[in-house]
Amino acid sequence: MSEAIRSMCKSLRLAYVADIYENIPFETPEQFIESLFSEEFRLREKAKIQRLIKNAKFLDSKSISTYEWHEQIRFPTQLDKESLLSLSFIQKQQNVVLIGSPGTGKTHLATGLGRKACEVGFEVRFYRVSHLIEQLEQALRHKRLEAFRRKFEKVDMVILDEMGYLPFSKEGSELLFHLIAEWYEQKSLIITSNLEFSQWNRIFTDSRLTAALVDRLIHHAHILTFSGESYRLTNALSKSH
């Protein structure tokens, strides 16, 4: 590979041509160019997906392909498994709320849907709710709240995991409320929680704020409920015997 060709590829922003052209079979000039550019596009798309997944900051590599669907997941009447997996709710800026006991597969499903969204080109962010509130409070203290909120401008979907596992301060509750209010009808949310909406007063200190938050979340939401024993507990018990 001559430096001249490598330099021209760089100027044309062809990221992979210089490294792959020798491996492309040559039958006709037209076929060679088409195969070369097809491979350039394929590698660009692969890199884009890897970048989207990295930016999402999932806590693990769980995917939909490894998800164990079970009969204890109750779908709302307007949604079934196929329409959930089609991710059409993201294009419609709708929310998905997964409610049920710990260990019943909510976070795995949320992560799997998030990863699938990245694979088709959506910008996704994953947060444990307690960590998000910590970051919001830090941003407020350092007068960087506006900059923090701007980070979500081009994000299509935000996953808020473990809503309700830890109570929030009044300040934290208000910061989260204002952020979710900004996202209302602008982005999709996936929320996992071990508490029914009627119990959210436990985590949000202000009952009026709680009611307003729930109202926004469920206005365009598909609510799935999970029942049954904890997978983690069941697996741990089975391994101990």
Results as ranks from 00 to 15, higher is better:
residue 7 S to I: 04
residue 10 K to H: 11
residue 99 I to R: 00
residue 14 L to D: 05
residue 32 F to Q: 03
residue 141 R to V: 06
residue 158 V to Q: 00
residue 162 E to S: 04
residue 100 G to H: 06
residue 218 I to M: 03
residue 103 G to Y: 06
residue 46 K to Q: 13
residue 17 V to L: 09
residue 11 S to V: 10
residue 155 V to R: 01
residue 207 S to Q: 14
residue 48 K to F: 07
residue 124 V to W: 02
residue 233 L to D: 11
residue 31 Q to E: 15
residue 139 A to E: 03
residue 232 R to L: 04
residue 66 T to F: 02
residue 154 K to N: 15
residue 145 L to T: 01
residue 2 S to W: 03
residue 216 R to P: 00
residue 178 H to M: 06
residue 223 I to Q: 04
residue 102 P to M: 06
residue 145 L to I: 10
residue 224 L to N: 02
residue 57 K to A: 07
residue 123 E to K: 14
residue 25 P to S: 09
residue 172 G to F: 00
residue 4 A to I: 09
residue 50 Q to C: 04
residue 239 K to I: 03
residue 52 L to D: 02
residue 44 R to D: 04
residue 34 E to W: 04
residue 33 I to K: 09
residue 19 D to Q: 12
residue 117 A to W: 13
residue 90 I to M: 11
residue 15 A to L: 11
residue 225 T to Q: 06
residue 130 S to C: 11
residue 181 A to E: 11
residue 167 P to D: 05
residue 204 F to S: 01
residue 190 I to N: 07
residue 183 W to T: 01
residue 129 V to H: 03
residue 62 K to I: 05
residue 152 F to M: 13
residue 209 L to R: 07
residue 175 L to Y: 00
residue 77 T to I: 13
residue 84 L to P: 05
residue 38 S to Y: 14
residue 160 L to I: 14
residue 240 S to V: 03
residue 158 V to R: 01
residue 124 V to E: 05
residue 164 G to H: 07
residue 220 H to W: 00
residue 79 L to V: 13
residue 217 L to N: 01
residue 88 S to T: 14
residue 151 K to H: 13
residue 129 V to L: 06
residue 63 S to M: 08
residue 75 F to N: 06
residue 164 G to K: 00
residue 22 E to N: 12
residue 37 F to A: 11
residue 29 P to V: 12
residue 183 W to S: 02
residue 110 A to Y: 02
residue 7 S to D: 07
residue 35 S to P: 00
residue 114 G to L: 04
residue 1 M to H: 02
residue 108 H to C: 09
residue 211 A to I: 12
residue 225 T to G: 00
residue 201 N to Y: 07
residue 240 S to W: 01
residue 78 Q to M: 12
residue 162 E to D: 14
residue 74 R to W: 07
residue 183 W to G: 03
